[in-house]
């Protein structure tokens, strides 16, 4: 078995849910002078209608690259080396011109990781939201401004600040403005790349609760990217864990929280400092992130793994194997007996 086929495994338990987005065997490379950086390597997953799919993993493991590939925003030297992306059955990698433009705003909106400076510095935040709405709908400026005010309220920005320029807002207020803009056209999928890094936990919780409400009301799906697993298990239905460009575990939030199977996921789960209880020594994960031009042989995590099986992990690349209908992991320990030496 090559890579997990998500249509019959690692699927949401509710079989009635139809995938809104399917990603199959996606590979993306950055062609650089020092070599090809394989930032995404044969990644497959589905996002169902109305679901929050979380994506987590170490800095530099390829999360933003996936977000850009899905929204067709990759630019050279990044190249999609293979794979297939479908949105409501349509082939995303082949969309052109008008269809692509509509896809990007009306069907899929993205909140960039650089949201803090994604805003145009010479336009007020109100004008920017109004422009997006007007470019894609028949609304009058007046109607669009009323909608902009409504959206700012959703993300907790004082209506009086609608005529502020981006540099007049704090980092978190700029992030919230970008979230408001993404909501403007009621898209079916919102890709959020680290959308809350500049928010305090109270505002973060308010916005997440508000998003959950809106999601119930309008039924959109969210691809939520963050390194913050404690936030991710709280808001996601299902979660994918990436390491060095590969998806190494995929499960429901509950399964991942209760029973993480990949040693990397287990280390991630255990390295959270807590504000309660006795202070423990914080170790994190020893070793350093892998070089994506020359990734380690066999399992890419083996140089940092404490459970290496001699003669196996360094030599054989583990495949993502289903453990049950919603849980899959790529680890020889978990898959004992299942791997073949391909």
């Amino acid at each position: 078995m090559a890579h997990i086929s998500t249509s019959d495994s690692a699927q949401s338990p509710d079989a009635a849910l139809k995938p809104l987005l399917t990603v199959r065997d996606l590979s993306v490379e950055y062609r650089t002078k020092s070599g090809r950086v394989r930032a995404v390597d044969h990644v497959s997953f589905d996002i169902n209608a109305g679901e929050v799919f979380g994506l987590a993993g170490e800095s530099g493991c390829g999360k933003s690259t996936i977000a850009h590939a899905i929204t067709r925003l990759l630019k050279p030297p990044a190249y999609t080396e293979g794979g297939d992306i479908r949105f409501q059955g349509r082939n995303v990698l082949e969309l052109k011109d008008d269809a692509l433009r509509a896809f990007r705003w009306e069907h899929v909106a993205i909140v960039f990781q650089s949201a803090m400076n994604a805003l145009n510095p010479i336009l007020t935040i109100g004008d920017q939201i109004v422009d997006v709405i007007r470019a894609h709908t028949g609304m009058s400026t007046r109607q669009a401004r009323a909608r902009a005010l409504e959206l700012l309220q959703v993300v907790g920005i004082d209506a009086k600040r609608i005529d502020s320029y981006p540099h007049q807002l704090s980092g978190g207020m700029r992030q919230r403005t970008v979230i408001a803009t993404a909501l403007a056209l009621n898209p079916e999928l919102i890709v959020m790349d680290e959308p809350t890094t500049a928010l305090d936990v109270v505002v973060q919780k308010q916005i997440i609760d508000e998003l959950q409400q809106l999601k119930k009301q309008f039924g959109f799906s969210i691809l939520f990217i963050t390194h913050d697993l404690s936030l991710l298990v709280e808001i996601s239905d299902r979660i994918g864990i990436m390491y060095a460009g590969e998806l190494v575990e995929i499960a429901t939030a509950r399964q991942l929280f209760k029973n993480p199977r990949h040693p990397y996921t287990q280390r991630l789960m255990n390295s959270f400092p807590s504000i309660h209880g006795a202070k423990q020594e914080m170790l994190g994960i020893p070793g350093s992130p892998p070089d994506l031009i020359h990734p380690p042989t066999g399992c890419r995590f083996h140089p940092r793994c404490s459970k290496v099986i001699a003669g196996v992990c360094r030599e054989i690349h583990p495949q993502l194997i289903p453990l049950d209908a919603t849980h899959a992991a790529a680890c020889h320990l978990v898959n004992e007996g299942l791997h073949d030496a391909n």
């Binding site: 907790g156 920005i157 004082d158 009086k160 305090d200 936990v201 109270v202 505002v203 973060q204 919780k205 308010q206 913050d228 697993l229 404690s230 936030l231 298990v233 709280e234 939030a253 509950r254 929280f257 789960m269 959270f272 807590s274 504000i275 309660h276 209880g277």
Partner: peptide
């Protein structure tokens, strides 16, 4: 107290305690 009650804490389970936040974010103007 409000801020600390909103900190996600995986040790406590999947969901953070419901926090009752009433009122608007203050206006600095």
């Amino acid at each position: 107290q409000l801020l600390i009650s909103a900190v996600p804490d995986p040790a406590r389970g999947l969901r953070t305690a419901e926090i009752k936040i009433k009122g608007e974010i203050p206006s600095l103007t």
